[in-house]
Design a protein around this nucleic acid. Structure first.
Lengths: 221, 221
DNA sequence: GCGTCGTAGTCAACGGTGTTGACAACACAG
DNA sequence: CTGTGTTGTCAACACCGTTGACTACGACGC
């Protein structure tokens, strides 16, 4: 049974990436990985200590691909806007690894380069090194968490998602206005807001704050 | 075996809440729930269709308790700041249900009252109904995602968490400055930023934006 | 060329998860 | 007193990540 090419970390990560790209947050399992590679599932443990290590590797690959595609000819603000949108898109496309990327530090090249890029944009905006360090964390934790949540939401089964959307368009409108006056006033608008608009709103708030910090500093100097 | 009080949805949710309050994201399992109640795990399925329904119920109870504790004598801005902090705290205390609350609409009383409270604060700030609807989503999605991520992070095993903290204080400082000039400039500050500060930074950015929208509107009128 | 040795793959198994279907025991209505 | 329907029990299913024993292979020293 030596016809198949020998297993390598490279091959395993490739297969894991393919699985993670398929729908469903639980698409990436060791048993499926074995089937995809045409070997016994436990053979994988000869090359990786545990599943976590595989997921971190796939994660960093995605992060690296994202920052690599970052257009360098943009000003700092559209650059960070692009990065936020692309991050959410990548997370939604790879639901199996999204939660891991969001809360773990991979400590791998892709992450280093992303941190470097974000810090660069913030310093370009005119922040001090200390401000840049802080706003970097504010920006990336916010975007990462939001992307992870979007991803998890997109990976929900159809029925749960439909229920959630119906809530905004129907149930919230049907609440008694006497007890919920604010909802009554806002209900007609709530149903029309989609995810992209919310992300835009978040990014705008974060980057407005960066601009105001930068200009305040500019005034002092 | 009828000495034990008969099972009710109420009793089950109580037990589930107790389990969810213990450490670990996977503290709440059907089998443990059975043990806690002193009955066979599958008896629970006589009262709830599946585990998801239980988790949603526990989740809404927490949301309700949070909004109930909201001090009403605060101005709109400190009120939203309090709500954000308390939400994160609750999520961290109940790691088992945090991811669910963050991305699902529970469509239950606790959620309604929270939405009502946030919308009320935003309208008080001076936003139009449409702006309030939009900023409500921006605020709550951001806070919920961030809280869910904090919760998941807090529920990590000690070793992973230590690795992550060591990354900021050691590995990022050890990167070659030639290739990572921005990280080199910011490294000394990165290690000193803690989670509370980041949350403050996020909330500040969001609410500054609300204020600027409100004052822009005030100018026009 | 032969023996040895480490390693990569296989296999069975463990303990865990949510969930289902058959069965029994009870409370209650007629 | 006899159904009847609800409620708890039990065994089982199909998964999950992971471990330990076993085996077959390639490479190396002599």
């Amino acid at each position: 049974m030596r016809t198949r090419a020998a297993l390598t970390p490279e091959l395993i990560i490739d297969a894991a990436s393919r699985l993670a790209a398929t729908a469903g947050a639980d698409a990436l399992t060791v048993r499926r990985l074995g089937k995809e590679l045409g070997c016994d599932p436990t053979a994988i443990y000869r090359h990786f200590r545990d599943k976590d290590e595989i997921v971190l590797e796939v994660a960093d690959r995605l992060v690296a691909a994202t920052v690599e595609a970052l257009p360098s000819d943009l000003a700092w603000r559209p650059r960070l806007e692009w990065l936020a949108r692309q991050t959410v898109r990548t997370f939604v496309d790879y639901p199996a690894i999204a939660p891991i990327v969001a809360l773990r530090t991979t400590r791998r090249p892709g992450e280093f380069r992303t941190v470097e890029a974000v810090l660069g944009a913030l310093r370009e905006a005119g922040l001090t090194d200390e401000q840049a360090a802080f706003q970097h964390l504010v920006y990336s934790e916010t975007i990462f968490s939001y992307a992870a949540m979007s991803s998890a939401y997109a990976a929900l089964d159809e029925s749960s998602r439909q229920g959630d959307e119906a809530a905004w368009s129907h149930e919230y409108r049907a609440l008694p206005p006497a007890r919920y006056p604010n909802i009554a006033a806002a209900a007609e608008y709530l149903a029309e807001i989609d995810d992209d608009m919310v992300l835009d709103g978040i990014v705008q708030a974060l980057l407005d704050r960066v601009e105001s910090l930068a200009s305040a500093r500019g005034d002092v100097v």
